[in-house]
Write a protein that binds this DNA or RNA. Structure first.
Length: 505
RNA sequence: GCGGGAAUAACUCAAUGGUAGAGUGUCACCUUCCCAAGGUGAUGGUUGCGGGUUCGAUCCCCGUUUCCCGCUCCA
């Protein structure tokens, strides 16, 4: 990881805080791990990202409808979906090397275990009574095992350890030792990635509920409700934007991996024999969506999952990856979930989620193609991708080159100087814009250059400037963020002009 | 969860075992007809938090929280 890349991330985190995009959660209390709050600019940006997604997936299509399911769902949902079982990883650590293993990945081993009760130093009074064991695999090499044990005690400040209380034990098919060095592993600890809480005032096992680790299940369990209410016929989709929660073992990289996050998911139900075509279709459609909203071609790619990488439900999966400063990372996964989920819920609930096929007169389970995107990840990617620094020294300019639809503020209304009625005129234009629900900003103080710079750093695509000529002929200038070019329009056509620019952007 | 590094004003950073400074920013007033101009003033910090050592700690020690890096994990 080069210094530059990390500098870029740090610079963006600082900019986000300074300009009000993203703050650390509960900062005055020292912060809360992996939790972030969106500030005034950040919330607009993220809303715009979600709106762009919703428009492209729902509003502009005849074949997709939306829902908003609750975060808490019946616990059996998570049994059926496989999350209750599959989301629990029993993990063990090597006491010597600290290397971590999944307990169920360790091959059973046989051999002789050497137990020690402790160690003392050969040249001082130092001693330690912590027990330790090493497995000497058949054919047993006891000297090597003892050497491992001495390393263990050396780590605990015994410089020249003499092992104490050695006993041996024959074992078969144990998984309690590190396959690489025979060293004892910790007890298995379960990491369930689902957040748990209690429904109602009594905290007992029967009231345990989970906060959803994905929004998809809310769609699957509502599949027939939605299909019947909206009279949809396959192929059709159900979309949802909402918060999900996962107790990630390692959160990090700013808002990239957090334990509370927002997903934009769509489940597209198709005839089983058409699954591969639709998979290709959504792969391309979703990839192009990022390009359409300004992500640079060289910073985005598709990466197919290897067979052994696939989730338990998936027949195929491809990631849309973005080149973050910390490396290529997933923005969105497009998966062929087959009929796994609908069948599971049908079996588990006893209520069939199959559709009746009028042609074949048979019940059938559609296959599901799922494009699942991270709203926070997409927001972060748009933020990073639009970040640009121009010029050097005094001419240096920081610009967020957002696609205009994503910009938190669309227009700033600025009087060139604070006199001759210019502030009043600028305020009138500002009010006009606001009355047309165009997100705008009025800035009167300080030099015009400074105010342009502030808007550049907020990613505002257009600045309206009221100058001397405005007072004579009623025209104002529109300044373009990316080129800094200016041209004049009649002040009473500003709203119309901006509206058309935003529509065509 | 392990190992390493860091934490001082809103941001970027200084400084010192004797209760902290600068630049930037922000605000007000003045000035200013086009890209972070200038002037004056103001705003700002229990030095992340909690203990300990000390006459005295931002500095030394311990713990803790958060962030970053590396493991590990990742539906």
């Amino acid at each position: 990881m080069s210094g530059n890349r990390q500098d870029k991330m740090a610079t963006i985190v600082a900019l986000c805080k300074r300009r009000g995009f993203i703050f650390q959660s509960s900062e005055i209390y020292g912060g809360l791990n992996s939790c972030w709050d969106y500030g005034p600019l950040g919330v607009e940006l993220k809303r715009n990202v979600k709106e762009a997604w919703w428009k492209s997936m729902v509003s502009s299509r005849r074949d997709i409808v939306g829902i908003d399911a609750s975060i808490l769902m019946h616990p059996k949902v998570w049994e059926a979906s496989g999350h209750l079982k599959g989301f629990t990883d029993p993990l063990v650590d090597c006491l010597l090397t600290k290397k971590r293993f999944r307990a169920d990945d360790i091959e059973p081993q046989s051999g002789t275990v050497l137990h020690f009760t402790g160690a003392k130093d050969r040249e001082s009074d130092a001693a330690i009574t912590e027990p330790y064991s090493v497995l000497a695999k058949t054919p047993a090499d006891f000297d090597k095992a003892r050497k491992t044990a001495r390393e263990f005690y050396q780590q605990r400040s015994i410089v020249k350890p003499e092992l104490l209380g050695e006993t041996t034990e024959e074992v078969e098919n144990t998984t309690g030792f590190n396959p690489e060095n025979g060293g004892k592993l910790t007890e298995a600890r379960n990491f369930n990635l689902m957040f748990r809480t209690f429904m109602g005032p009594v905290e007992d096992a029967s009231s345990t509920v989970y906060m959803r680790p994905e929004t998809a299940q809310g769609i699957f369990v509502n599949f027939l409700n939605v299909q019947q209410a909206s009279r949809m016929k396959i192929p059709f989709g159900i979309a949802q934007i909402g918060k999900s929660f996962r107790n990630e073992i390692t959160p990090g990289n700013f808002t990239y991996r957090t334990r509370e996050f927002e997903q934009m998911e769509m489940e597209y139900f198709v005839p089983p024999e058409e699954d591969e075509n639709w998979y290709e279709y959504w792969k391309n459609t979703r990839f192009n969506w990022y390009l359409e909203y300004g992500i640079k071609k060289e910073n985005i790619r598709l990466r197919d999952h290897e067979k052994n990488e696939l989730a338990h439900y998936a027949k195929a999966c491809v990631d849309v990856e973005y080149k973050f400063p910390f490396g290529w990372s997933e923005l969105e996964g497009i998966a062929n979930r087959t009929d796994f989920d609908l069948k599971q819920h049908s079996n588990s609930s006893g209520k069939s989620l199959a559709l009746f096929d009028e042609e074949t007169k048979e019940h059938m389970f559609p296959f599901v193609i799922e494009p699942a995107a991270g709203a926070d990840r997409a927001t972060l990617a748009f933020l990073i991708d639009s970040y640009d620094v121009e010029g050097e020294g005094k001419d240096k300019r920081t610009v967020l080159r957002f696609h205009p639809s994503l910009s938190p503020i669309k227009v700033a209304s600025l009087p060139l100087v604070k006199r001759d009625g210019m502030p009043e005129k600028a305020e009138k234009i500002y009010n006009d814009l606001l009355s047309h629900s165009i997100s705008s900003f009025l800035d009167i103080n300080l030099s015009i250059g400074r105010r342009y710079a502030r808007q550049d750093e907020a990613g505002t695509p257009y600045c309206i400037t009221v100058d001397g000529q405005t007072m004579e002929d009623g025209t104002v200038t529109i300044r373009e963020r990316d080129t800094r070019e200016q041209y004049r329009v009649a002040s009473d056509s500003v709203v119309e002009c901006i509206t058309s620019k935003l529509r065509n952007a």
